[in-house]
């Protein structure tokens, strides 16, 4: 811990050792502390939603699913609330890759309409350059939490990390196992993989690769998440919520008994008709005069539709988890 005086209003301020910037809580002027040992931009998102507000957001999101208890805003009973700040590195990498090798080209034979009927693939020496810049979000902690890794994080409203602020809301700050250098290495490795993929599109054999990675920017961002355990009608459920934006990372959905009965009836309705359809279609194909009703046509239809509908109803209806947003996979 370091103590300094705010240069604007002379209020006393406290800083963590890694902190380079401090915002005065009295006059909201940001000051920069130069010549600290470990210069890294370290930010945090503030906890915007308090426990009561996050409970309202959670209940609201759950209620958007069918078959949830109508009185959830009253009956949702928070049993355990954990607030933790999780670290993400945001890294911008520039990579210039020069490559040499053998690329493919083709000669065509036997003209046919607008093309050819045969093709011969040959190799010829080829070289080129990839030069571009991309941004990566790298998960800092040791613990792997896929829901948080895949969560589409928002950096809006970030401010310099203040240990005091996390303490004020009684939150635990999760440390990163990756230091800045390791985060850079990981981002550069991902970038190299992308260039490698591109190279294999251009070349069949790679002979020589020279690359020059450059990390254009890196910062560490701590995002607050609520880990909740809640009770609805004597059953326990879990949820993870983003405390900065109020979005639901993931939650289990409490459903009413009548919902399961409905899903059961609906899938049974489609399923029975589907199976009956298969029976009639098969039975009728062996004996064309079966019932004399031409039921085999209906049977074929019912078999196809009934099975598809049953599977769809079960897949959609038996969902137990809800996610509000997910990061798109590259």
């Amino acid at each position: 811990m370091k103590s300094i005086m705010c240069p604007n209003c002379a209020a006393p301020l406290e800083l963590e050792d890694t902190q380079t910037h401090v915002t005065c809580p009295f006059c909201s002027v940001t000051s920069e502390l130069k010549k600290v040992d470990q210069l890294i931009e370290h930010y945090m998102l503030p906890v915007v939603y308090d426990v009561e507000q996050i409970r309202t957001e959670l209940a609201g999101d759950i209620l958007k699913s069918p078959g949830t208890p109508d009185d959830l805003h009253k009956s949702l009973n928070l049993k355990k609330v954990d607030l933790k700040f999780y670290p993400y590195y945001i890294v911008t990498v520039h990579l210039r890759t020069e490559y040499k090798g053998n690329g493919e080209y083709a000669t065509f034979h036997h003209r046919y309409k607008s093309g050819y009927k045969s093709i011969d693939i040959h190799l010829k020496p080829e070289q080129g350059v990839f030069d571009d810049e991309r941004e990566f979000i790298i998960w800092g902690p040791k613990e792997i939490i896929n829901d948080l890794i895949n969560f589409e994080i928002s950096t809006r409203g970030k401010r310099y990390f203040q240990a005091l602020e996390a303490k004020k809301v009684k939150a635990k700050v999760v440390k990163t196992v990756l230091d800045v250098e390791q985060a850079k290495v990981q981002a550069v490795a991902t970038m190299r993989d992308i260039h490698k993929g591109l190279m294999y599109k251009e070349l069949a054999q790679i002979h020589e690769v020279k690359d020059k990675p450059e990390v254009k920017g890196i910062y560490l961002l701590h995002i607050p998440f609520y880990f909740l355990e809640f009770e609805v009608n004597n059953k326990m459920y879990k949820a993870t919520m983003d405390a900065a934006t109020g979005r639901t990372v993931i939650t289990q959905i409490p459903r009413e008994g009548s919902y399961w009965v409905m899903i059961g009836l609906l899938s049974a309705f489609f399923g029975i008709i589907g199976i009956a359809g298969i029976y009639f279609a098969v039975a009728a194909s062996q004996d064309a005069s079966f019932f004399g009703l031409g039921i085999n046509w209906v049977g074929i239809f019912a078999a196809i539709t009934g099975i598809v509908f049953t599977v769809r109803t079960l897949l959609l209806g038996l969902r137990t988890k809800y996610r509000e947003t997910r990061r798109k996979k590259r």
Binding site: K2, I4, P7, N8, T23, C27, S28, V29, T30, S31, E32, L33, K34, K35, V36, R159
Partner: peptide, 17 residues
């Protein structure tokens, strides 16, 4: 010795966060 700099708007001199 650490040096402390405060940020100001170059246009209207208001202190900024």
């Amino acid at each position: 010795m650490s040096q402390i700099v405060k940020f100001q708007c170059p246009h209207c001199n208001a202190p900024v966060d």
